[in-house]
Design a protein around this nucleic acid. Structure first.
Lengths: 147, 147
DNA sequence: TTGATTTTGAAAATCATTTTCAATTATATA
DNA sequence: TATATAATTGAAAATGATTTTCAAAATCAA
């Protein structure tokens, strides 16, 4: 069961024990089967759509839980809303964000990472993490633009 | 007078005319003489310290005005608070943010910019702007860490 | 000076997120 | 299996940064 991953991961971090719960299972299940970003609202709506009762409190709580044990990554783009993505599916990456349609494209560019490290070294800075987002127009929206 | 820059810049953008105002002059003056980031609270406190009356509404309004005509740049780092920086002092740059003391270091790295453009091209994406922040520990905080 | 328009600040509204708290549920153990 | 203990839940309230409202004050053009 998917919650087991969570339990182990969580309890190994020396917090209070986790009791199993239907609601949390629901959220974790959605989360584990997602391989891209989603907003809290998106997840909430999805569960509601299955005509299942859930509250935002629980959604936020569970997502923060996943985040705190490193299973989820949080991204906050320009719109200021928190999105989550599964950390188990992909390595660190950066984002291209379309300002027209909101599409989010992930990319990795090791050469940039290397240069970032260089910059940090130059400033005697130790980098824990970074975020990099390129905002603009995606191919599809550019096409529409031209019509 | 510094407000003139604002007036010209603003009115040339075809909006309603600007009347001169002491409060706005105060804020614009602070802004123009700043060459680094500041939070809204920082500016507000600074003006209050001079025992001058001002309200947050006015501060926000004026800063947003400066932003809308391109004189100010807005940055939102991990803490979620909006900071402003004068756009007239420096070119585009990215940031190193110390997670311990909050220090913000600016840097430019043309090689990274070039690689970003390459990434965008690869995805047929047109980039309008980007943000890149490296979070970690600055040299001073690392030193303290070791004691 | 008047009349029209902009600016201001206090208070209320927003909006995503977090917290509170009482009721419900899971679990360990008697 | 019953009971005690602790975790989970959701509704509603709280939060906190920012924006909006609205009536009063200030500015400007004629």
């Amino acid at each position: 069961m998917e919650q087991d991953i969570l339990k182990k991961s969580y309890q190994s971090k020396l917090k209070k024990p986790l009791k199993s719960s239907v609601k949390r299972a629901l959220i974790v299940n959605y989360f584990m089967n997602r391989n891209r970003h989603f907003s809290v609202e998106e997840l909430y709506d999805e569960i509601k759509k299955m005509s299942l009762k859930i509250s935002y409190s629980t959604v936020y709580r569970t997502l923060n839980l996943l985040s705190s044990i490193g299973l989820a990554r949080e991204c906050v783009f320009k719109d200021g809303m928190t999105r989550f993505e599964p950390a188990h599916r992909s390595r660190h990456h950066d984002h291209l964000v379309c300002e027209r349609c909101g599409k989010i494209i992930e990319f990795e560019e090791p050469k940039i990472e290397k240069l970032q490290k260089e910059v940090a070294r130059r400033h005697k800075f130790t980098v824990d993490w970074h975020r990099m987002e390129l905002y603009g127009l995606c191919a599809e929206c550019k096409k529409k633009e031209k019509l």
